[in-house]
């Protein structure tokens, strides 16, 4: 029984995560060709024997052309920026939710999550409506006389971060709120009894105890944000594409599946450390 219960999700993961990932690795060592699909596999049956026809060309190109390293770096920066902003905002929000009366917690959490339920596209449309030249923000600033000409907000870093933060903030609040409302309040009471001021209690008891959850929240935003595709595409600046976009372009526009797969594997390798850290936190 126990074995079956463990085996079921394991099989699922083997079939739908490992197998596709292996396919990806298989393709990364192949070379681009014309056909359906447009790849020549690294191993081919030739003259009655298997022969190795793979190449490391795709990986070599990754190292050669700074375009790819640049995209990776920028993706990581944007992801880290988003995650840091989200954490800064999410921590106090989650704390306030945890401190609210128990019957208010769930409704408050729902209030944080609900904007996500409008769907990505209407939400991004709202941001476009806010940020464009004749948009709301420019309209208000103009009317207040703070600016004379409309600011170019859409397709800028501001728009990018606003959109990213808006989409990812709820994912940071959720784990933090859960951890903070489940924390052991006896420790804080003990510290207070021993004469610690509230700020001191927070800094030396609450905060350190919630650090793992904070790190988890950071990673929960950072990791998917590093591969984000739609938001930068619709709100971000046109230059300096992020890695998600570059992979998309290599896959569809250049139809260089091996290179796209190699890029994906690289991103995976770079993110291996954070994901490992995240899983450690989950266990600890």
């Amino acid at each position: 029984m126990r074995a079956a219960l463990v085996a079921a999700p394991f099989l699922w993961l083997l079939a739908l995560v490992l197998a596709p990932a292996l396919l990806l690795g298989w393709i990364a060592f192949g070379s681009a060709a014309e056909g359906v699909p447009p790849v020549a596999p690294p191993l081919a049956w030739q003259a009655g024997a298997l022969s190795w026809q793979g190449s490391l060309e795709s990986f070599a190109l990754l190292l050669e052309d700074p375009h790819y390293a640049g995209a990776l770096l920028r993706s990581l920066l944007v992801a880290a920026g988003t995650a840091a902003l989200a954490l800064l905002l999410a921590y106090p929000m989650a704390f306030a939710i945890a401190e609210a009366r128990p019957r208010w917690r769930l409704p408050l959490l729902a209030l944080v999550l609900a904007p996500v339920w409008t769907g990505l596209m209407p939400r991004l449309g709202a941001w476009i409506g806010l940020l464009r030249d004749e948009g709301w923000i420019n309209g208000v600033l103009l009317r207040l006389g703070l600016i004379e000409a409309p600011l170019t907000l859409l397709f800028s870093d501001i728009a990018l971060y606003a959109g990213m933060l808006h989409s990812y903030l709820p994912y940071a609040v959720l784990p933090l709120a859960i951890a903070l409302s489940r924390r052991d309040r006896l420790l804080e009471a003990a510290a207070a009894d021993l004469g610690a001021a509230p700020a001191r209690v927070f800094l030396s008891v609450t905060l350190p105890l919630s650090l793992p959850a904070a790190a988890a929240a950071f990673l929960l935003v950072f990791i998917p944000a590093a591969g984000e595709f739609v938001i930068p595409e619709l709100l971000g600046p046109p230059g300096d594409p992020l890695l998600g976009r570059v992979i998309w372009a290599e896959f569809f526009q250049s139809r260089d599946w091996p290179l796209a797969a190699a890029l994906a594997l690289t991103l995976l390798a770079v993110l291996a450390l954070p994901i490992r850290a995240y899983q450690r936190l989950g266990q600890g």
Partner: peptide, 17 residues
């Protein structure tokens, strides 16, 4: 590792694979 992988796989990569 596999249970956490979908969290890190960029959507583009996961969709493709």
């Amino acid at each position: 590792l596999l249970a956490g992988a979908p969290l890190v796989l960029p959507e583009v990569v996961m969709g493709l694979s």
